[in-house]
């Protein structure tokens, strides 16, 4: 399994009905690593948060596309979720738990906190009016060895 490598890319419209599609597609791709039920739930939740952010914040529920690139290297899964929306002004602030720019939409401000809790690493690259790319990594099977 050490040198095992696989990769996939997908592009879809930034509409809320694609949130379910995106997390299920990534979940299916990752399933060949034989993740536990919890690991799979972690990945799906993290993808759902990232995609929801693109739709609500990146594009503010207007038209746009979302790209997901997912690769498997040995037991590590790397997932990048990219939009070309409005970007994040202050990334450190956006990542703070409970911080939200959209309280009127009853957003909880827990999106990034969940990505961080459920994945091993989360990297955010963003530029105002160019877009945002969130890259998340997780090693599968670690919890079983512990």
């Amino acid at each position: 399994m050490e040198g095992f490598r696989n990769e996939m890319k997908m592009e879809f419209l930034a509409i809320s009905s694609n949130e379910g599609f995106a997390r299920v597609a990534v979940g299916a791709f990752v399933s060949e690593l034989d993740p536990t039920v919890d690991e799979l739930a972690d990945i799906k939740t993290a993808v759902s948060e990232a995609v929801t952010n693109c739709i609500i914040h990146g594009y503010e529920q207007k038209e746009g596309n979302i790209w997901i690139q997912c690769s498997i290297l040995g037991k590590m899964v790397e997932i990048s979720v990219t939009d070309t929306g409005k970007g994040i002004k202050d990334i450190a602030l956006a990542r703070e738990p409970l911080f939200t720019t959209k309280p009127e939409l009853e957003r909880s401000g827990m999106g990034f906190a969940f990505m961080e809790a459920f994945m091993d690493e989360v990297e955010v690259v963003s530029e105002p009016w160019k877009g945002t790319c969130v890259t998340m990594r997780k090693v599968i099977g670690e919890s079983r060895m512990a």
Partner: peptide, 13 residues
């Protein structure tokens, strides 16, 4: 079977 942070807003609201 599945809930993410959007569900939290629903409940608190």
């Amino acid at each position: 079977r599945f809930m993410d942070s959007s569900g939290i807003g629903v409940i608190i609201g």
